[in-house]
Amino acid sequence: MFRLKRQFVVAAGVAGVAAFAPFVLGGYDLNLLARFLALSLLALGIVLTWGHGGILSLGQGVFFGLGGYALAMHMKLTPLAPGEVPDFMMLGGLEALPAWWVPFGNPGFALLAVVLVPGIVAALFAWSVFGRRVGGTYFALITQALALAFATLLVSAQETTGGFNGLTDFQVVLGLDLNGAEAGRTLYWVTLLVLALGWAGVAALLASRFGTMLRAVRDGENRVRFLGHDAAAYKIIAFAVAAMLAGAAGALFTLHAGVISPAMVGVVPSIEMVIWVAIGGRTSLAGAIAGTLAVNFARDAISSAFPDLRPYALGLLFILVVTLLPGGLAELLAARFRKVAR
């Protein structure tokens, strides 16, 4: 089912071509592409959990946000002299840095936190739910509540999280001047590299024994249990890996967008993340990336031209794809290819 070597070759080829984008695209388009490539990294995680694990999470925005905020906190701290606090804290009347902000001043800690905090939170969360054999629809509803709770909490803790406006106005990241001429290109290449590595990693995971077991859990969880396997463990690991990908995606997105705010992590954005993958094809990694890029570029075009139409278009897309084309675009293409081959 998964010809791994071919996937690697295709991934490397596409990434190689995409690497030339900075020489072709203008600054704005390149920035958009880079943002959407970062989002694609998160979509890979949804393929892993939803497509191959049968776990529908409506709360991926939480892990995206955890990664994004972890890096954003570091970037807010970098330009400060010792004893100073970020601008929004000063407005909030805070004199000293809260204790949980302090370690993010260290670049190594912040980079680790980008993937580890979402990973650990997701693992604990999934363990507490899947461990009790609660899953399916229940899990989807609980993850949605998680997304709502996370977003409200961020808004309400204004003095320490920047509240509704989130964290913005970054100057420098790990020695790279974000306002410099080369920043856009460099960050684009970094994003592309991370995405290619993520693609290869998830592809290898899906082709491994773990991937086979995950699909077995999806298709017959009780049978897997009766054969003596710990079905919950596979789901927990898949969910944690997806959360780490989402965290990395959040950090990269924050770099490109120059802001991370509760509006990007709540209920609505979280569920929109699922539609990217639904359209591309829930079991296909390439499909998920293509779906993410297509939906987001279309959304960008529609939003600027007809802002009122966006919810209608998105809603209709959701209904039509899910009811009529559950395999997404990938399935459509695969059927084409089979026909040609015959």
């Binding site: 919810p311 209608y312 998105l314 009811t323 559950p326």
Partner: peptide, 26 residues
């Protein structure tokens, strides 16, 4: 129109009805 056609797929029903909720809100 919607639920009956999706009855064997609970998670897909979630997604399709969420699309409907977007349309109704707008």
């Amino acid at each position: 129109v919607l639920i009956r056609r999706l009855s064997a797929r609970p998670l897909d029903t979630l997604l399709a009805t969420w699309g409907l909720s977007l349309i109704l809100q707008q």
